[in-house]
Design a binder for these strands. Structure first.
Length: 391
DNA sequence: AAGGGTGATGGCCGTGGCTG
DNA sequence: CAGCCACGGCCATCACCCTT
C-alpha cells in the first residue's frame, strides 16, 4: 500500500509539453495511444536520423496505468502489432497544414513501435520532431495525471484543446477567470477525429482554404460514409456531456458548454472554461486514493469471509467508513448464534448500526472520545463529507 | 415537420473470476 | 498458470415524445 501511494506520487507531479500545433492537429488516435504519447514524453531522445524515440519500461507502464491485470502487456503488444486487425498505434494519423505552402498533409505519427523485454519503444515521424522536442513557444503544459485519468479519447482531446486554448488566451489577454471558446460542430468533429479527410481530395482542398466551408465538408464526409455522430443529440450525449462530466470531475479544468443555434439546428458549441483552484483538485484526488486504501484495509480484514465483490458492496453501503464496517464485522463475529447469511447480516448491521446496542459505551458523543476508537483520525469523514457535498 | 431529449435494446470488447 | 466464459460498460440505433 505504501508502494501504491508512492506510485501515485510518481505520476501526480509529472507534466509534459505538447506543441499547440500537435494539439490542434486533426486526427484520430485511441485513448491508449494518446496516453502512451504522454508517458513517452518523459523519456525521449533524438536518434541519428532525427527521429524522436521514446522508451518506456513495462514496470513504469504498470505504475502509470495503476494496472495489475495480467493482460496489460498483451494489449500493448497488440497495439504495436501491424498484423493485428483492429486499432493499432500506427493508425494514429494527423492532418496538418504546412505553414509554407498551406497544403494539408497526413502524417502517420508513430512509424515504428516495438515491445520487447518489457520495454516499449516508439519512434515518431521525423517530420514531427521539431514539434516534440526543444519547444520554446506555442506549447501547452499538460498534467500527466490529468491525462491518464481520462477514459474517453474525446475527453482527452477536449482536455488538451481547451487547456491549450485557455492558457493561450490567458497569456494574450492577461485575464484570469472564465473564458469562452467557440467551435463549429464540424470543426469540432474534425479536431476530435470523429470525421477525417478519409483520403478524400475534396475535403483536403476545402480544408486548405483559409476559411473552409464546413457545411460542404460535412456533406462530403457523409458521402464517404462517415456518419458517426451525425445527429447532434447523440454527439451531445456520448461525447460532449461525457467529456464535460469527466473533465470536471478529474482535471484542473472546469468546463461548461452550450449549443450555438441557427433556428432549431445546432451549428456550433460554445465552451466556458475556468480553472479550478489547485487545492480543490487535490482534495478530490485524495479522496479517491483514500477509497482504495480503505478498500485494501477492508480486504485485509475480511477476505476470509467475503468475496471481493461483497466487500466492495459493503464499502459502498457504508460510504467507505472503515470504523462502521469493522464494528459491524466484530459484532457479527461476537454474535451469540452462528450467522446464516453473513452478507445480509452485515448490510443490516451497517444500515441499522446494531453494534451500538451492545457496546453503548462506544457511542461517541463528545469530540474527545478518541481513545475509544481504534486510532483513526476523523480526517476521512471530513473528506467524504466534502465529496458528498460536491456531488 | 424537423430538431432535440431520453429510455430501451443489442452488439462489441475488455476485465476479472473460475476451473482444469 | 493458462484458457475460457460471464459480466459490465460503452456505443450505436430505434422508438417515442416534446419543443420550436
Amino acid at each position: 500500500m505504501q508502494n501504491e501511494k508512492r506510485d501515485q506520487l510518481v505520476v501526480s507531479k509529472k507534466t509534459y509539453k505538447k506543441s499547440n500545433e500537435l494539439i490542434n492537429a486533426m486526427g484520430k488516435g485511441t485513448a491508449l495511444s494518446q496516453k502512451l504519447f504522454a508517458i513517452g514524453m518523459q523519456n525521449i531522445k533524438v536518434d541519428e536520423t532525427n527521429n524522436v524515440v521514446a522508451t518506456i519500461y513495462g514496470t513504469e507502464l504498470r505504475k502509470m496505468f495503476k494496472s495489475s491485470s495480467g493482460s496489460l502487456y498483451e494489449h500493448i503488444e497488440a497495439l504495436c502489432d501491424r498484423q493485428i486487425k483492429g486499432a493499432t498505434i500506427f493508425d494514429w494519423n494527423l492532418l496538418m497544414k504546412d505553414k509554407e505552402n498551406g497544403k494539408i498533409e497526413a502524417h502517420q505519427v508513430v512509424t515504428d513501435a516495438s515491445f520487447k523485454n518489457g520495454t516499449l519503444t516508439l519512434r515518431y515521424n521525423n517530420s514531427l520532431t521539431d514539434k516534440i522536442v526543444n519547444l520554446q513557444k506555442d506549447y501547452t503544459v499538460l498534467s500527466l495525471a490529468d491525462t491518464l485519468s481520462l477514459k474517453s479519447v474525446y475527453s482527452l482531446r477536449l482536455y488538451e484543446m481547451l487547456k491549450s486554448a485557455y492558457d493561450y488566451q490567458r497569456a494574450v489577454t492577461k485575464m484570469q477567470g472564465e473564458m469562452v471558446f467557440e467551435y463549429k460542430l464540424t470543426e469540432l468533429k474534425l479536431e476530435l477525429g470523429i470525421i477525417n479527410s478519409g483520403g478524400s481530395k475534396e475535403i483536403k482542398t476545402e480544408l486548405e482554404k483559409e476559411f473552409p466551408d464546413y457545411d460542404r465538408i460535412d456533406e462530403l464526409a457523409e458521402k464517404t460514409g462517415q456518419t458517426k455522430y451525425k445527429e447532434y443529440k447523440i454527439f451531445n450525449r456520448n461525447v460532449l456531456s461525457k467529456a464535460k462530466e469527466e473533465l470536471n470531475k478529474k482535471t484542473s479544468l472546469q468546463v461548461d458548454y452550450e449549443p450555438i443555434k441557427n433556428g432549431r439546428k445546432t451549428e456550433g458549441i460554445r465552451f466556458f472554461v475556468t480553472k479550478k483552484d489547485a487545492e480543490a483538485v487535490e482534495k478530490t484526488a485524495e479522496v479517491a486514493v483514500n477509497k482504495d486504501e480503505i478498500l485494501d484495509d477492508l480486504i485485509d480484514l475480511m477476505h476470509d469471509d467475503f468475496k471481493l465483490r461483497e466487500i466492495r458492496e459493503l464499502a459502498e453501503l457504508a460510504e467507505y467508513d472503515y470504523d462502521k464496517i469493522k464494528k459491524s464485522y466484530d459484532y457479527m463475529n461476537s454474535y451469540s448464534s452462528p450467522v446464516d447469511v453473513p452478507i445480509a447480516f452485515m448490510k443490516d448491521c451497517i444500515k441499522n448500526e446494531y453494534y451500538n446496542n451492545k457496546t453503548t459505551k462506544f457511542r461517541p458523543k463528545s469530540s474527545n472520545s478518541f481513545n475509544n476508537f481504534e486510532q483513526r483520525n476523523d480526517y476521512d469523514f471530513e473528506e467524504l463529507e466534502k465529496k458528498l457535498l460536491d456531488n
